[in-house]
Amino acid sequence: MNVEVLLPGTADWFAVCDHDALTPGRGVAALLPDGRQAALFTDRHGRAYAIDNRDPFTGAYVLSRGLIGSTAEGRAFVASPLLKQRFDLENGRCLDDEAVSVPAFPVRMR
């Protein structure tokens, strides 16, 4: 089964990789056709998420290497591996700074 990401500003789904390539609880980086980078994650229940790979606090393309977790309300997040700010995996909002967010990409499995 392939994990596909909806390319921003288009109606095109882009196949990234096989679902088996994802380790539950971790992320990988993917290179999109326009040169952008996405960070893909899967949680312990197999659900996949994708957000932009760039950490807005440092500018480094590293969010895919953060640890994921779930909040008390059950929302999945990733904590940046650099300065540990957390980002909601469904909408890209930073949970530690309301003014900051990263793009989130719809994901499907085919």
């Binding site: 609880g25 590293v62 290497r65």
Partner: peptide, 21 residues
């Protein structure tokens, strides 16, 4: 196994992450 998902990025890649990734 499951331990892989627990480690911080440094342990995950057995190296120390620096500011530019």
């Amino acid at each position: 196994g499951e331990q892989a998902a627990l480690q911080d990025t440094n342990d995950h890649f057995l190296a120390n992450l620096q500011r530019n990734g």
